[in-house]
Computed example of a mutant assay.
Amino acid sequence: MAKTIQVDQLANEMTDLIKQYTSDMSSKISMLVDETADDVLDEVQALAPKRTGKYAQGFKISKKDDYYKTKRIVWNKKDYARVHLLEFGHALWQGGRSPAIPHLRPAYQKYGARLPDDIRKLIKSGG
C-alpha cells in the first residue's frame, strides 16, 4: 500500500527508510558473522589435537561489537599460550622439532574467506 506524503516531507521519509534499511542489514550481517564464527569454532574443535580432549573444549568465541563493526574472535580460553605451539610446531627440549598440527588456520581459511562473498550476496539481494 502506497503512502501519501507531502513534498516537503520527502527528505525525512527517505532518511527514515535508509536508517531502517541500514539497521536491518546491520543485524543480518551480525547474524551472518555469528554463524560463521560458530562454523569456525566447530571446525577448530574437530581439528584440534585430542590427547585428553580438554584442549579442544577450551576454544570459545569472544564478541567485540563497536559502532558499525562486528567482530568475533575464536580463541582458547584455557590454553591460549599453547595454541601457537601446536599450530606451528616448536623446538623440543631434547632437540628437534615437534610437528605442526594446524587446526585454527584451516578453519579460518575455510569459513572466513567465504564471509565477504556471503555479505556481498546478502547486500545485493536486499537482505
Rank of each mutant, 00 (worst) to 15 (best):
K3L: 15
T4E: 13
T4V: 15
I5L: 15
Q6H: 09
L10M: 15
N12A: 15
D16E: 14
L17R: 13
K19Q: 13
K19W: 04
K19H: 08
Y21H: 11
S23G: 04
D24C: 03
M25F: 02
S26M: 09
S30L: 06
L32V: 05
V33R: 02
D34K: 05
D34M: 05
D34E: 14
D38K: 11
D38Q: 11
D39W: 02
Q45S: 12
Q45G: 09
A46C: 01
A48W: 01
K50Y: 04
R51H: 06
A56P: 00
G58I: 10
F59N: 01
K60W: 09
S62V: 12
K63L: 14
D66S: 13
Y67T: 15
T70M: 08
K71I: 12
R72S: 07
R72Q: 11
I73E: 12
V74G: 00
N76P: 04
K78M: 10
Y80E: 15
A81K: 13
A81F: 11
H84A: 13
L85F: 07
E87I: 10
E87H: 05
E87L: 12
G89T: 03
A91D: 09
L92S: 04
L92W: 06
L92N: 10
W93F: 06
Q94W: 11
Q94T: 13
G95C: 04
A100E: 10
P102T: 12
H103E: 10
R105I: 12
P106C: 07
P106V: 07
Q109P: 00
Y111A: 03
Y111C: 05
G112W: 01
L115S: 01
L122D: 00
S125V: 01
S125P: 01
G126V: 10
